[in-house]
Structures are given as structure tokens and as C-alpha cells.
Measured scan of single mutants.
Amino acid sequence: DVEEQIRRLEEVLKKNQPVTWNGTTYTDPNEIKKVIEELRKSM
């Protein structure tokens, strides 16, 4: 579920933690925001 994935990513973003997405680890909050944007567009 895309909305659930977005929620999880936003939680990680709030905690300022790195997130691994599709085999890539993002540590930059701006990169994580881009991933969230892409997910929103795909909905």
C-alpha cells in the first residue's frame, strides 16, 4: 500500500534516520522527501 509506505518514510524523516529504499540508503532528508514525492505521483 503506497500510502502506508509514505507514512513510514515520513516517520523515518521525523526521526532523522537513514532509510533504505529499493536497495539504496538515503541519509539526506531532501533525498527522502524526493522518494516520498515520487510515491505520491505514482498513486
Rank of each mutant, 00 (worst) to 15 (best):
R8N: 12
Y26N: 01
L13N: 02
R40S: 05
K15N: 15
D28Y: 03
K15R: 11
K33M: 14
Q5V: 14
S42K: 11
Q5S: 12
P18D: 07
K34G: 05
L13G: 02
N16L: 08
Q17L: 15
R7H: 10
E11V: 04
E4H: 06
M43H: 09
Q17K: 09
M43T: 09
N22V: 02
L13E: 01
V35D: 01
I36P: 00
E31A: 10
R8F: 15
N16F: 14
P29S: 08
T25S: 05
K41H: 14
I36Y: 02
E3L: 14
K14L: 15
T20D: 13
N30L: 14
K41S: 13
Y26K: 01
V12K: 15
T20C: 09
N16K: 11
I36T: 01
R40W: 08
V35F: 09
V2S: 04
E3F: 13
T25L: 15
S42Q: 15
K33C: 08
I6E: 01
K34S: 09
L39Y: 03
G23R: 00
D28G: 04
L39N: 00
Q17E: 15
I36W: 03
L39G: 00
Q5A: 13
E11D: 11
W21I: 15
I36G: 00
L13D: 01
Q5K: 04
T20Q: 11
D28S: 06
S42L: 15
D1V: 10
T25C: 08
S42D: 09
N30A: 14
W21M: 08
G23D: 07
K33Y: 11
R7F: 07
R8I: 15
D28L: 03
I6G: 00
V2P: 06
E3Q: 10
W21S: 02
T27Y: 13
I36K: 00
T24D: 08
M43S: 06
V19A: 10
I6V: 04
L39D: 00
R40Y: 13
V19Y: 11
T24F: 12
E11F: 04
E4K: 06
N22A: 08
E31L: 09
M43I: 15
E38F: 10
L9F: 08
M43R: 02
E37N: 06
D1W: 14
R8H: 13
R40D: 02
I36C: 01
K34V: 08
K41P: 02
K15F: 13
V19G: 06
D1G: 13
V19R: 00
V12G: 15
N22M: 14
L9W: 04
E3D: 08
L13V: 08
K34L: 12
L39S: 00
N16Q: 09
T20R: 09
Q5F: 11
V19K: 01
E38V: 06
E11C: 05
Q17D: 08
K14A: 14
L39R: 00
K33T: 08
R8L: 14
V19M: 10
R7G: 05
I32S: 00
I32N: 00
E38D: 12
I32H: 00
E4I: 06
D28P: 01
V19H: 05
K41G: 12
T24N: 10
L39I: 06
R8Q: 15
D1T: 13
L9A: 02
N22T: 02
Y26M: 14
N22Y: 08
N22P: 02
N16M: 10
V19E: 02
G23T: 02
I6M: 03
P29E: 07
N30Y: 12
I32M: 03
V19N: 02
N30T: 12
Y26G: 01
P18V: 11
Q17R: 07
T25H: 09
N22C: 10
T25Y: 14
W21Y: 12
V35L: 15
I36S: 00
V12P: 02
Y26S: 01
G23Y: 02
P29C: 03
K15T: 15
G23N: 08
T24C: 04
K34D: 05
K15V: 07
M43N: 09
V19W: 12
Y26A: 01
E10I: 07
L13C: 02
Q5W: 13
S42T: 14
D1P: 08
V12L: 15
S42N: 10
N22G: 11
T20L: 13
V35M: 11
V12S: 15
E38L: 10
K14P: 02
R8Y: 15
I32V: 10
R40V: 07
I6F: 02
S42I: 14
L13F: 07
Q5I: 15
K41Q: 14
R7T: 06
T27K: 07
Q17N: 06
V35P: 00
V12N: 15
K33I: 13
M43E: 06
L9R: 00
K15A: 12
E38P: 00
Q5Y: 09
K14Q: 14
V2Y: 09
V19L: 12
W21P: 02
K14R: 14
E10T: 07
T27C: 03
T20P: 03
K15L: 15
D1Y: 12
Y26T: 03
E10F: 04
V2F: 11
R7V: 05
L39A: 02
D28N: 08
E38W: 12
P29F: 07
R7Q: 10
I36L: 10
T24E: 11
G23S: 04
E37L: 08
G23E: 05
E3H: 10
V12A: 15
K41A: 15
P29V: 09
V35W: 05
D28E: 08
T20K: 11
G23I: 01
I32Q: 00
Y26E: 01
P29M: 14
I32F: 06
K15Q: 13
E4W: 08
P29T: 08
N30R: 10
E3V: 10
I32L: 07
L39H: 01
L13M: 11
R7N: 08
Y26C: 01
V12M: 15
T20V: 15
V19Q: 02
E4V: 04
P18M: 11
V35Q: 03
E4Q: 07
D1A: 13
D1S: 13
P18I: 10
N22F: 10
T20N: 10
N22I: 03
P29N: 05
